[in-house]
């Protein structure tokens, strides 16, 4: 079972809100999941090399060549909230936006 503080910070990060009854339920459930995953800690991995990568040459890197992306009509079709070539979202209201309004 996780504590209230942990649940609260997880909820804030996920932008979720739960009722008190749901909170008790999920505290238990998340706790169970975490202790199940903890089982993996029993495996001794000290002898395993975490390096999965090979050399830069063999790694599939991309040549720095530019190509045209999606046509605007297709981009527009990706979201129901698209207007004048912009995606639209609910207004972002934050104190810092007033000062650091991105141009």
């Amino acid at each position: 079972m996780i504590d209230d503080k942990t649940l609260q910070s997880v909820l804030a990060l996920c932008k979720f809100s739960l009722s008190d009854r749901e909170k008790e339920h999920f505290k238990q459930q998340i706790g169970d999941i975490l202790s199940y995953v903890e089982t993996l800690n029993q495996v001794d991995t000290r002898s395993i090399d975490p390096d999965l990568g090979k050399s830069l040459e063999s790694m599939s890197l991309r040549q720095d060549k530019a190509a045209v992306g999606l046509p605007t009509e297709q981009v527009a079709g990706l979201s129901a909230h698209f207007q004048d070539s912009f995606f639209t979202v609910p207004r972002i209201i934050e104190e810092m936006d007033e000062i650091t309004e991105e141009s």
Binding site: D64, K65, A66, G69, S85
Partner: peptide, 25 residues
């Protein structure tokens, strides 16, 4: 010339959302 993880052009200015692809979106 291109973006970090896709081949969309890496330029300044231009029409909004004119240099996007499934990766950078």
């Amino acid at each position: 010339r291109s973006k970090a993880f896709c081949s969309c052009p890496n330029n300044f200015g231009g029409a909004p959302n004119s240099r996007v692809c499934p990766r950078c979106l």
